[in-house]
Amino acid sequence: MKQEKLIEVYQNNSVKISIRREWCKSCGICVEFCPKDVLVPDNQGKPIPENIDACIKCSLCELRCPDFAITVEGVEEKDE
């Protein structure tokens, strides 16, 4: 069965952070430069958005990731 490519999704009601673990090379760039210390490395050095509620959706982690392994999307607040 073809799995959804090992993508981990973390979400709260304002932001969705997805991490494609098979592409991530644990370089540490996203973790180091997140202005709000949202990301912390797991035991393989891959990012986990532990403090997702602090995320300001600046997308810098996504733009600086050399491996297209992390993305940040805003979550549309539905008022209906």
């Binding site: 098979e22 090379k25 733009l63 050399p66």
Partner: peptide
Amino acid sequence: PNMWCPGCGNGI
């Protein structure tokens, strides 16, 4: 995944 070393700027 691309062939570059971890953290290589080429991907950026």
